[in-house]
């Protein structure tokens, strides 16, 4: 008899497996983000930061810190799910799950949990390392954590969809290289979109990462470059929730139809 209890056990099993997987190889999964942050901090804080001084009225090193923390959250959440799910698909160990009584919801939640756990852990660790370079008082902790959480869910789901469609390992790296990196760099990590020409400012507003970084920046330092106001925060959170709803619907549809998993 399939009960909620059975599915809870299955979910716990999958979550534990996913977390154990990325913790076991922490030098590959956690450490690189911290090293990158230290390098960014040295370059932007000491070398470039001393030349630029301020961005949107904020000290440059403080300005870039939120984006530099959110970048590994985006990457780690995405890569964790994409590589783990595709890896299991590639060596066909995904069949262990498909023949089991675990529901499709359980499968999706388990993989997304793994991505979110890695994203959150990396996010919190990079934030703590960043605070050593920029000793600021966090303006709004709950908003910061909510933003990291929603961001990691979005990109974990994106990683899942990519892994379902991927047929080879190269396919898993297409989205990070050609979509995520440009969107992140053009999402106002290093500069304020206010300094862009008007046309690029308008285009930037279609980039969801801009809203995530701006909301996160506000939660950390209490200021944002976006329109110089805080009116974007609620719409930003709603956009993120909307993205999660759409991506979840797509993911469940893929699982229910067996796309990329069943012949």
């Amino acid at each position: 008899m399939i009960t909620h209890y059975s599915n809870r056990v299955a979910l716990f099993t999958l979550c534990r497996l996913e977390v154990r997987r990325f913790l076991r190889i922490w030098p590959q999964t956690i450490l690189p983000s911290l090293i990158s942050l230290v390098l960014y901090m040295l370059i932007f804080g000491t070398v470039i930061g001393s030349q630029i001084k301020t961005m949107g009225g904020i000290r440059y090193i403080e300005y870039v810190l939120p984006g530099l923390v959110l970048m590994p959250v985006v990457n780690n959440s995405y890569v964790n799910v994409a590589s783990s799910f595709f890896g299991n698909k590639f060596q066909r160990s995904i069949e262990e799950l498909l023949v089991s009584s675990a529901s499709n919801w359980t499968i999706l939640c388990g993989y997304v949990f793994g991505g979110v756990a890695r994203g959150l852990l990396t996010g919190v660790l990079t934030l703590l390392v960043g605070l050593m370079f920029v000793p600021i008082k966090i303006f709004n902790w709950p908003l910061a954590l909510i933003t990291i959480l929603l961001t990691s869910i979005i990109f974990a789901l994106t990683g899942f969809i990519n892994a379902v469609y991927a047929n080879k390992f190269d396919d898993v790296s297409i989205i990070p290289t050609f979509v995520l990196s440009p969107m992140t760099y053009l999402g106002g990590v290093f500069y304020s979109t206010d300094i862009l020409p008007e046309i690029w400012q308008k285009i930037s507003h279609f980039n969801p990462i801009l809203y995530q970084i701006s909301t996160f920046r506000y939660s950390l330092i209490g200021a944002s470059s976006m329109d110089g106001s805080t009116s974007f925060i609620m719409p930003s959170l709603l956009i993120m929730l909307g993205c999660i709803a759409v991506l979840t619907t797509i993911s469940m549809h893929l699982l229910n139809t067996g796309k990329g998993l069943k012949s």
Binding site: S6, N7, V9, T13, E96, L97, S100
Partner: peptide, 12 residues
Amino acid sequence: ILLTQAGYFGIP
């Protein structure tokens, strides 16, 4: 592997 498979079937 065996414990995980049991877990997928809801066996703690």
